[in-house]
Write a protein that binds this DNA or RNA. Structure first.
Lengths: 182, 182
DNA sequence: TTGAGGCCCATAGTGTCCCATGATACTCCA
DNA sequence: TGGAGTATCATGGGACACTATGGGCCTCAA
């Protein structure tokens, strides 16, 4: 496995991108820093990304808890809620990480995301993504182009200023996580 | 049996989708992760889903307790309460899981949900569903299409942000379950 | 007696555990 | 500052446990 950088301690945010291999048994190692971001749990949920980008999206129990809270917030019998529950809850794989940090990807997931022998793990703040490396390269280039646009940068600047103000006027410094350990 | 993924420990949420077979005696294995979500009980309640989707909906004693509490909250002699009590309480099958985790589906349930030799178990958070596999495929595709709509994604995003804010401003981190064991 | 349901045992497949190994990055000490 | 030692990590592979599933036997009721 090769990554862009090195580790971390006690974060709850998935950052950076890592590549790793799928072995003969269909197992793939979760990057160590992502394991740390999972906060010690060994359960991993994965589903086909909602945005149609063709990657898998996933996270640990904390993420699933977030989604559960989110979904129960939607109107009980709305079509949106039914659709999202089906798509996210029923449509996600419930995987267990072994004690060396590997999960076994099912055939459905592999074909759905067009995975063969290598994958790219991409951090996505609260969740992470699993990509076919080639697709990820395309995606990354597209995103880089979009990010370089004037409008995009302006939006970033605005939002950043707002946060700065809020932080300045406010109390303490922002924290990246609430429950970071050691 | 083939499913999207693997196992669990001590949750009370039904997640993921699994396919399994009905044997010559009309028995069907409850997926191991769903058994875990049932919390150790061996009693299963099943009824025809209220929304007319043609699947069976079910859960364990915890779910039935939830429904009981919910129904008693309705006005005692209201038509709605009578109807729902009849439909859910009277209309549900009370099945006992054997020690290898199988239940026997009655003919009524089989025909009502159009089940023959294979079924799909679909997690639905607090409950699960049992589908004819073909019907489930249609249903899932329809839900996926609905979930991919702009409006739906936007609603999800909004709700997610709210949960994030609430969590950030609030107290402790979210917990997925209240009574997780082991 | 006959059919159905419940209980028990058997079995194949596969997911999981636990071992080992090589490589890499980090640490410590000279 | 550089090199040896050490910890961490990704990966491979064998053994085992668990799961899904099939089938036989017993019991009970019609």
């Amino acid at each position: 496995m090769r990554g862009l950088g090195r580790i971390s301690q006690g974060w709850r945010v998935f950052v950076s991108t890592y590549e790793s291999a799928i072995d003969a048994k269909g197992r793939v190692s979760i990057p160590a820093s992502f394991r740390a971001a999972l906060g010690g749990g060994n359960r991993i949920f994965l589903w086909l990304a909602l945005d149609g980008s063709g990657c898998l999206e996933g996270g640990g129990e904390a993420l699933m808890a977030m989604y559960r809270a989110t979904l129960t917030r939607l109107a009980p019998h709305s079509p949106a809620r039914k659709a999202l529950v089906t798509r996210i809850i029923a449509g996600s794989a419930d995987l267990k990480m072994d004690d060396t940090g590997r999960i076994k990807l099912s055939d459905e997931l592999m074909t759905a995301a067009n995975l063969t022998d290598r994958v790219k793990f991409a951090g996505n703040m609260d969740s992470f993504q699993i990509w076919n490396p080639d697709r990820h390269a395309e995606h990354f280039d597209a995103m880089a182009a979009e990010a370089a646009k004037e409008d995009t940068l302006e939006a970033l600047g605005h939002a950043y200023s707002e946060v700065l103000q809020q932080q300045g006027s406010g109390n303490t410094a922002l924290k990246l996580v609430d429950g970071g350990d050691s």
